[in-house]
């Protein structure tokens, strides 16, 4: 009996270990090799941080990283604003003309292949610059608009699920006490849903930072984002600098995810408390 339990425990544990190895093995090996002395990625030549040093002097990568961060921050911020408006409209007004098509349009980028999204945006921008003269060329602006397009969809999902639990009698109470609707929104609703907005912003930021396909379609000369640089340099042979860069990005992203998770956890705990 106890032997059987022990055996099944060992089986379960090895399954778990296999799962973790499958998920995190590649990332961990990439991180370890970023500290490799050798120029050859597959040959271990002892510990070193020299690739980090070289990375810091690679102007092309630094420029691309700066551009990507800028694009991610701007597109995420706009996406949060528009997504909050969309989510408010969808949650608060259960019946209005065009609600169905709004819902459809907000879900489409979630399920549409990125290639198609990128291509359609490219065609749109070309046609627009021809007919309207704006955007004049393709570059930072077009990437920001493209990233906003799909980020809004994701952020709306996050904000909407928070608003679905929101007690709108709080806004009514604020108005009853003399606050105009806009003031009621900014003093009551916004602080209460802010954890969801932060989580949504982080999600949009990460999605934008991560995007290669859409950006490749809508970028122009002189606006190369970080994933594009990484992808093109890998094709010429993997440089350990890329490993170093990947390690930094993985660390930053996991940190952001951890913070978002913590914020969500606290928000949920407080919401449950206030429901009691």
């Amino acid at each position: 009996m106890s032997l059987g339990v022990k055996k099944s425990r060992i089986a379960l544990f090895s399954l778990l270990a296999f799962g973790y190895a499958f998920l995190y093995g590649p990332i961990v090996s990439l991180m370890i090799y970023s500290f490799n002395e050798s120029r050859l990625v597959t040959v271990w030549g002892g510990w070193s941080t020299k690739w980090y040093g070289e990375l810091m002097h690679n102007q092309q990568i630094l420029d691309a990283a700066w551009l990507s961060l800028k694009i991610a921050a701007i597109s995420a911020s706009f996406a949060v604003v528009f997504a909050t408006l969309a989510a408010m409209a969808l949650v608060r007004y259960k019946r209005f003309r065009g609600r169905g098509s709004l819902l459809l349009m907000l879900t489409a980028p979630l399920v549409m292949p990125e290639v198609i999204l990128g291509l359609s945006l490219l065609l749109l921008f070309v046609a627009m610059s021809e007919w309207l003269g704006w955007p004049a060329g393709r570059g930072q602006t077009t990437i920001i608009i493209a990233h906003m397009t799909f980020a809004i969809a994701y952020v709306t999902v996050v904000v909407r699920s928070r608003l679905a639990h929101f007690d709108f009698s709080l806004e009514e109470a604020a108005m009853d006490l003399g606050a105009k609707p806009v003031k009621a929104f900014f003093t009551i609703t916004l602080p209460l849903i802010s954890p969801a907005l932060i989580a949504g912003w982080l999600l949009a930021f990460t999605l934008s930072l991560d995007d290669l396909v859409v950006a490749s379609f809508v970028s122009g000369p002189g606006s190369t984002t970080l994933p594009m640089v990484v992808y093109s340099s890998v094709r010429l042979g993997v440089s350990p600098q890329i490993n170093a860069l990947a390690t930094i990005i993985v660390t930053l992203v996991s940190l952001a995810v951890a913070i978002a998770g913590y914020v969500f956890y606290r928000q949920e705990k407080q919401r449950l408390k206030s429901l009691q």
Binding site: D167, L170, E172, M175, D176, L177, A179, L192
Partner: peptide, 19 residues
């Protein structure tokens, strides 16, 4: 509108501002 009426209301759920 509610914010211009000279009366106040106590809500069934109390609607206290949690933050």
């Amino acid at each position: 509108p509610p914010y211009e009426r000279p009366l106040n209301m106590m809500f069934q759920s109390y609607a206290l501002f949690p933050h």
